[in-house]
Design a binder for these strands. Structure first.
Lengths: 107, 107
DNA sequence: CCAGCTACCTTGCAATGAAAGGTACTGTAC
DNA sequence: GTACAGTACCTTTCATTGCAAGGTAGCTGG
């Protein structure tokens, strides 16, 4: 997968969904998403920062035995609503694109 | 649909597929895609220009009874290969994103 | 004590879609 | 005949977002 552009906006959706399932810290999130989509730290950290600033995440620190303290992110109520809306928009969008690239009818 | 970011990269795919079905001119293309996805002229014309420069389209002019001459775009062989590759990448990408936002297993 | 891993962060840069604006041709209504 | 709406082309400027590269710091094992 080389197409960077496809990712635009979708990573935000992925981060919201994953953190919604359980509190996560940034480094862990990078590794989780990397299993499916190529991603780098320089993308995730600014994104987490922005979503926190916009009120979709709250954060707390926890000590770790394996390195520096971890900053966990938790989805807020506002974040849940936003996540659900984004999921709907994503499904809708995929449907529309598929109707263009597969539906052979309308000019 | 408000999420601009989802569109990044996908419009290129849509344009390639639509022009691949039949030669189209820019204005017509904007109207076609607009039926499914909100799009503006300022997006399509530079995109057509770029794809032409990259060798995916050839162009020709045709007079019109209803206004200025139309510049038609035709998909080249190279364009067809690129279109097919993009369609595959799109399907693959959608699968990966859905596995993240719906697959509840892996952390 | 230092190499490697964990874990955090920031500063540039590139790509792409949109808004706003501009040119020009055709037909119709006044 | 001229003013307007519609067709059709184009460009410049801006915002957003992902990435590469680089930096800080803690912990563990050799």
């Amino acid at each position: 997968m080389e197409n960077i552009q496809f990712k635009k906006g979708v990573l935000e959706l992925c981060v919201l969904v994953l953190v919604g399932r359980e509190d996560l810290y940034g480094y862990e999130l990078v590794n989780s998403i990397s299993k499916h989509i190529e991603i780098s730290e320089g993308t995730i950290y600014p994104l987490l920062r922005r979503l926190t600033k916009e009120g979709y995440f709250s954060t707390y620190l926890m000590e770790s035995q394996e390195g520096p303290p971890r900053k966990y992110y938790r989805l807020t109520d506002s974040g849940m609503r936003y996540r659900d809306e984004l999921v709907r928009e994503w499904d809708d969008f995929v449907g529309r694109v598929n109707s263009i690239i597969r539906g052979g009818e309308e000019a």
